[in-house]
């Protein structure tokens, strides 16, 4: 285990150390202490390493992640896991706004709550939240899965494409063109595998699936007068 004290090493030197790890590095376990809410911790990693941040992080932690696993033993600031490509991010506390925005792949797990705009414009990332999520989550979500064990805020899935949303609790309101969908066998299987991967014990049959009504895919001629 390599331990980096962020208060001594500094952000750039620390990220440089992590970026220097190659595909076949044998230094696979890293621990970052004294994060104190700093921005851009463990951003842009691209190696199969596991980084554990002992405390809360600021903006953009683990952004653009590939291959790496990043554990945050605290709460995470805005834009955590933004544009994640692959790998895994596990947040023990809460996540602030626009978690996993535009994420293309990988998995993000939040043990607490996630704030507004969770998974905004998601493009393939899987996000599993044990608590609640805020308003405008998965706005323009294109693909990937958003699993919420608690409640969702206003305007879930507004203007979404083919991203799937599974919510166990209440949805305050659905966004434009987002609708409740039938939970078929393949969805239960998919949801079970996501919950298992996230290490969350929940019964898939208690969830409701939501997704695009696909009414915004094509121009409706009745709206021609509006232009």
């Amino acid at each position: 285990m390599q331990t980096i004290d962020l208060s001594e090493t500094g952000l750039r030197a620390m990220n440089k150390l992590l970026h220097a790890q190659s595909e076949d590095t044998n230094q696979t376990a890293w621990e970052i202490i004294n994060p104190k809410g700093a921005h851009a911790i463990a951003c842009g990693l691209n190696a199969p390493i596991e980084v554990t941040v002992k405390g809360s992080t600021g903006y953009y932690c683990a952004g653009m992640n590939q291959q790496a696993t990043v554990n945050i033993h605290g709460s995470a600031g805005p834009g955590t896991g933004e544009n994640i490509m692959s790998g895994k991010i596990v947040i023990e506390g809460d996540a602030s706004q626009y978690l996993g925005a535009t994420g293309h792949g990988g998995l993000i797990v939040v043990k607490g709550n996630a704030s507004s705009r969770c998974g905004i414009s998601m493009k393939g990332v899987n996000i599993v939240v044990q608590g609640n999520i805020g308003h405008m989550s998965a706005f323009m979500g294109q693909s990937g899965n958003l699993v919420v064990c608690g409640d969702a805020g206003d305007a879930l899935g507004d203007s979404c494409y083919e991203a799937r949303f599974f919510v166990r609790g209440k949805v305050k309101s659905l966004g434009a063109d987002c609708e409740k969908k039938e939970m078929r066998k393949e969805h239960l299987t998919l949801l079970k595998s996501l919950l298992d991967e996230a290490g969350i014990d929940a019964d898939p049959t208690e969830f409701t699936r939501y997704g695009s009504a696909r009414n915004l895919y094509n121009f409706d001629v009745d709206n021609a007068g509006a232009y």
Binding site: G37, S56, G77, S96
Partner: peptide, 19 residues
């Protein structure tokens, strides 16, 4: 505005922190 501003307060490790 950010958690950074709070990190040196006494007992912050065990505080209830929320948005």
């Amino acid at each position: 505005s950010e958690y950074r501003a709070l990190v040196d307060l006494p007992g912050i490790e065990n505080a209830r922190v929320w948005e």
